[in-house]
Design a protein around this nucleic acid. Sequence first.
DNA 1: CACTTCGCTCAACGCTTGTAGAGTGAAGGG
DNA 2: CCCTTCACTCTACAAGCGTTGAGCGAAGTG
Lengths: 180, 180
Amino acid sequence: MSDPLTRAERRAATAARILAAAQVEFGLHGSDGATVRSIARRAGVDPSLVLQHYGSKQGLFALAVRPVDEVSRADAPAHLSEVLGMRLRELPPETRALMRSMLTSPEAAGVMRTYLQDRVDALAGASDAEDAELRATVLVSTILGLTIARHFVGLAALEGLEQDRIEAVVEPWLASLLDA
Amino acid sequence: MSDPLTRAERRAATAARILAAAQVEFGLHGSDGATVRSIARRAGVDPSLVLQHYGSKQGLFALAVRPVDEVSRADAPAHLSEVLGMRLRELPPETRALMRSMLTSPEAAGVMRTYLQDRVDALAGASDAEDAELRATVLVSTILGLTIARHFVGLAALEGLEQDRIEAVVEPWLASLLDA
DNA sequence: CACTTCGCTCAACGCTTGTAGAGTGAAGGG
DNA sequence: CCCTTCACTCTACAAGCGTTGAGCGAAGTG
């Protein structure tokens, strides 16, 4: 069933375990609140091993919050409802880690800015209206706000799994911003 | 011109200076990143004096991020455009401090949740639609997202002082959410 | 079976943090 | 003018941090 793993494979496996643990810890406590020791504890490993693998806490953080590049869709607006749906569900670990630190870590803020601006550009490029970029920015900011309100602040109306009802209200409203 | 200040007055003045310094530092670096020493340095005071005045760093933080209670308007929706305008300008120090820490400090998150939920309730109470609370929550979350995108992430289209143009796009769009 | 490689742990460092307590010197009351 | 009060500073400590280098023991090689 399971082949005996080679030394390199075992090493790669623990490296991956450490990275996953780091994403969880950064996602729970932010880039400052999460410590090398807490990450190591979660990965079941000695603290110094974390640094042997990733050089420094900062290097590990940079990897942990790197967004997985999504396939850029031609039909950007149609892609929107999909993104909205994902942001209202459970967030993937690297997204959680990035968002948790975006207000206190300049590095995370930079990654977030680049990521969001890319989204804005893709969205604005699909339109040729006067205010295209501004409208796209407002739309992206709205999804950002909903994600924070849902997963980090915990506003009552966004809790629970009445996700369909939320999308039913939000989606047409978002669409109306681009049409106008 | 200036009356000689009594001892109590001088003490109160330095206390206020420390609180103001704390709001700036918390606003710049968050509740963890700001240190008692950095706050004291900014206030031109010894670190231990900070604690003699406010007991602990946490106590000082709690005071520093306490929202100034605004007069609750009867015409909540009309109040909206005013709030939106303020959030697009420079943020007051206590708001900046609160927002900076809302993702990494459970205490700040709690204060923010209460504050936003109050806004939602005031807004939803003015309507009697089916989805009133959900729509109010989405609206409040949108303003939150715009504020973060403008002041903390720095999306290009929200920078600069084209505030009027932004409001011209956003205000009617927000209003349409409540009317529908 | 001997020898090397190397993934991993152990122990320790220098530094910064929040906080406590003693000390100081000027303001204020008799 | 003396003596108390007290706003403020100085010094110190224990804890936790990121990071480093030496050592161990099992996996791989001949």
